[in-house]
Nucleic acid binder design. Structure first.
Lengths: 214, 214
DNA sequence: TAATTTTAAACAAACGTTTAATTAAATTTA
DNA sequence: TAAATTTAATTAAACGTTTGTTTAAAATTA
């Protein structure tokens, strides 16, 4: 048995993690049994305890697994002298949307955990990652304000809530959106591309009109 | 036993509904047992089946109960000739935030159901309520565009996603916000007021800068 | 051979629901 | 009004399943 925090998972472990992630996202953590996971992943039930210790530790492993490789991208952007603050923010929006659309299951799972109050271990993981992202966006905002590009009195947490909240809500209710706008003839792939484009353009417009000094 | 759709619930039924709502919000639907609910509400387990038929039908009753009385407010606003489109939108923002802050448990529950894919009966309920709200906001937008007050090419669904998504994310991560901004000395009541004020001001600024024609 | 992985079976605990008996309330009858 | 009857509400106990986890043996790999 391996420690949940270790990020070196073997093939079988990754297979379990990704299957569990998909099922948890679709039916919720408590709504998914370890037997569901075992069957879907084509492994024996005991393997879950064997590799992860428990169902609880499995979901912690999922979060550690996804968060650890979600982190990097912002770091490169922030110190790029050639980019304006506006461009940096646009890059962050793009990369956030990209990650979210590619990992819809995981973001669904995060939204579930966020809405449930009684989760301790995972909250800690999310807190750190969130605080780190927040600090970086804050720096970009301050840089823009210093250059007279952005208006002042902007709450970073609210700005982040807009980016994350709008994106999450929009993708979570994509079934609604598709039905409401009669887009059922579009292929799944095209629809995803359509959502991504639409959301990206919108958020950039939104940020620009909110932040720009008139 | 009464039909779940009926809105005439007696005292005891309301007590069960409100207890269940609170527990579902805190621990999730599958994470809450009927025994939890019975104990917390101070009733016998069998009363849940007796009054609602099943745990599944109980959560449907919660949604019917809350949605039925959440509806009204927008209707009065839309046909008020004395209000400008901008004022109407501001009123909608205020009344949405007010409802959400007063019924945080229910909104938490809605967010949970939204993130879980496999819920049919409830999705239908939400769809109707959502489509209705969307149509009304659409009308206000069109009125504002006609009067030259609002810019064109605004997707109503995305605008709603911003209002709902930002609000939900912000309140869902209020624990984070409190910790991040060192506000733990503030009383719970004051903190809620603070959040409400902050969110309202922000969303109005956001809407105004996005919609206003420059 | 020794260590690791995989298996089927078993575990007790918890689950949602139902039962059948009892109490309380409402209605009807005298 | 009082008693009798019917309906509704409440209870503790039991139901069969399903739950997450463990076991000890078998198979595989090193």
């Amino acid at each position: 048995m391996q420690e949940a925090k270790t990020i070196d998972y073997n093939e079988k472990q990754v297979q379990i993690i990704e299957t569990a992630e998909r099922l948890f996202a679709a039916k919720g953590f408590e709504g998914t049994s370890v037997r569901d996971i075992a069957q879907e992943a084509g492994i024996n039930i005991a393997m879950i305890s064997y590799y992860f210790g428990s169902k609880e530790k499995l979901i912690e492993a999922i979060f550690a697994y996804r968060i650890s490789y979600t982190r990097l991208t912002i770091l490169n952007v922030i110190n790029d002298e050639a980019m304006s603050p506006t461009e940096k923010l646009e890059r962050i929006i793009d990369s956030y949307i990209d990650k979210m659309m590619k990992n819809q299951c995981f973001y669904r799972l995060m939204a579930q955990e966020r809405s449930i109050l009684e989760v301790q271990n995972i909250s800690e993981l999310i807190y750190d990652s969130k605080a780190r992202n927040m600090e970086m966006v804050k720096k970009i905002l301050q840089e823009g304000q210093k250059k007279g590009e952005f208006r002042k009195n902007i709450d970073v947490a609210l700005l982040m809530a807009t980016m994350i909240g709008t994106s999450n809500h929009f993708t979570s209710s994509q079934a609604f959106y598709r039905r409401y706008n009669n887009l059922k003839d579009m292929s799944d792939e095209d629809f995803q591309k359509y959502l991504k484009k639409k959301l990206g353009t919108y958020l950039k417009t939104l940020f620009k009109s909110l932040l720009t000094v008139q």
